[in-house]
Design a protein around this nucleic acid. Structure first.
Length: 156
DNA sequence: GCCAACGTTGGC
DNA sequence: GCCAACGTTGGC
């Protein structure tokens, strides 16, 4: 089993939105970055654990946990001209963009703030704390997962 | 809302 | 295939 972090803007889709979905499950679509796409297509597996991270909002940080229930398949929004994620260069035979399905596991009582994450001495490898840090799908090592999970659940 | 940092595009 | 221009991300 592997560990990941997925970013989302909670004004568009938050951890509590995920909890309210039918089956508490949602396709993680709309990822339009090649590096992130490659992780979704080739790396993310059924059963993997995912931190749901809230970005561009009041309370920036890790908000909860989800689990992958369906691995990489073509993101249908790329074929839909009505969708903001439409991509005219994608074809059914040769899709450019992929998504996975995630299922709600838990929401933390409090978001683990980015500032706290950056201050944690054991958290140095995750792309989140590295320069730039704009990647929206990123791997998390098991060690970092454990540290972050403990920090998030210790704060309530 | 600002702006730095980054990814993507497209002219050549 | 380089690289400048542009658009986007995302913390603050």
């Amino acid at each position: 089993m592997a560990f990941w972090l997925f970013k989302t803007e909670p004004d568009a889709f938050s951890i509590s939105d995920l909890a309210r979905r039918p089956q508490q499950t949602e396709p993680w679509d709309g990822v339009r970055n090649f590096q992130a796409r490659n992780f979704l297509r080739d790396g993310v597996q059924r059963g993997d654990k995912v931190f749901i991270y809230h970005s561009s909002c009041k309370s920036v940080g890790i908000a909860g946990v989800a689990e992958v229930v369906k691995e990489g398949y073509p993101d249908v929004s790329q074929f839909n001209p009505e969708s903001p994620y439409y991509d005219a260069r994608s074809t059914l035979e040769n899709p450019k963009w992929f998504c996975v399905d995630v299922k709600y596991v838990e929401a933390f009582d409090k978001v683990l703030p980015l500032a706290k994450i950056k201050a944690m001495p054991d958290i140095t490898e995750i792309a989140l704390v590295k320069k730039g840090g704009r990647l929206s799908i990123m791997p998390v090592t098991e060690q970092e997962w454990q540290h972050l999970y403990r920090a998030a659940t210790a704060q309530s």
